[in-house]
Simulated assay, not measured.
Amino acid sequence: MLIRPLNVNDVDNWYAYLLKVAGQTSNISFSTADVKQRFRPDKMRGHLGNNDSNISFVAITDEKIVGLASISRRLLPRYLKRGELAISVDEDYWGQGIGSSLMAKVINYVQQNWQLSVIYLDVLTSNTRAIRLYEKFGFKISGDYPLLLTIDGHNQPGKLMYKQL
């Protein structure tokens, strides 16, 4: 497995990955329909390359993307020291350390390049597997969302988690 920044040559593979994981789980913030509507490859190509405000890392096995971690921050002086993380792994590859490898890569990157003080993330309360991963990397629960996502017409609660760097 290789972990590296997402680049313009990955866009079609990235799009196929998003479609796949959106169909596998409701634990992520977008559905298959959302991917088709909002994450078109032609739009994505234009957004790559601004590593000051966001960067995505991909886990690649057998020349396909099997995991993705994205971190972003606002480029306003009062927000420069905080980032927001999102991570996903293809269900076919769960339990192989891909999530941990992506987490380690992102944390190292932002410490070296952005000098963040804190990373935030949202997670569904029911996603105990992800919560355990985040806690393994030192994330703590900061609060509860009575409604984090609405999935198939049902409001789902969530947790706000953070890691101080």
Rank of each mutant, 00 (worst) to 15 (best):
M1W: 05
M1Q: 06
M1Y: 06
M1F: 06
L2A: 06
I3T: 00
V8Y: 04
V11A: 06
N13P: 01
N13M: 04
N13L: 02
Y15E: 03
A16Y: 00
L18P: 02
L19I: 11
L19T: 06
A22Q: 09
S26L: 10
N27D: 09
S29N: 06
S29M: 08
F30D: 00
S31A: 01
S31Q: 03
T32Y: 13
A33V: 13
V35K: 07
K36R: 13
Q37G: 03
Q37M: 10
R38A: 02
F39W: 11
R40C: 07
D42G: 06
K43V: 13
R45E: 02
L48H: 03
G49E: 02
G49L: 06
N50V: 01
N50F: 04
N51S: 13
N51Q: 14
D52V: 08
S53Q: 10
S53Y: 08
S53M: 10
N54K: 14
S56M: 08
A59P: 00
I60E: 01
I60R: 10
T61K: 14
V66W: 05
V66E: 03
L68F: 11
A69Q: 07
S70L: 14
I71F: 10
R74E: 15
P77A: 07
Y79N: 02
K81D: 09
R82G: 13
R82V: 15
G83Q: 14
L85M: 06
A86C: 06
I87C: 04
S88Q: 05
D90Q: 10
D92Q: 14
Y93Q: 10
G95A: 12
G95Q: 12
Q96E: 13
S100C: 13
L102V: 03
K105C: 08
V106L: 09
Y109Q: 07
V110Y: 08
W114R: 09
L116H: 14
V118D: 09
I119M: 08
D122G: 04
V123Q: 04
V123P: 01
L124W: 03
T125E: 08
S126C: 07
R129S: 00
A130V: 01
L133N: 08
L133P: 02
Y134Q: 01
E135C: 06
F137G: 05
F137H: 12
F139Q: 05
K140V: 15
G143N: 11
D144V: 15
D144W: 12
Y145Q: 14
P146A: 11
P146N: 13
L147C: 14
L147Q: 14
L148M: 10
L149F: 09
T150H: 09
T150D: 05
G153W: 07
G153A: 05
G158T: 02
G158L: 00
M161E: 01
M161Y: 00
Y162M: 09
K163H: 00
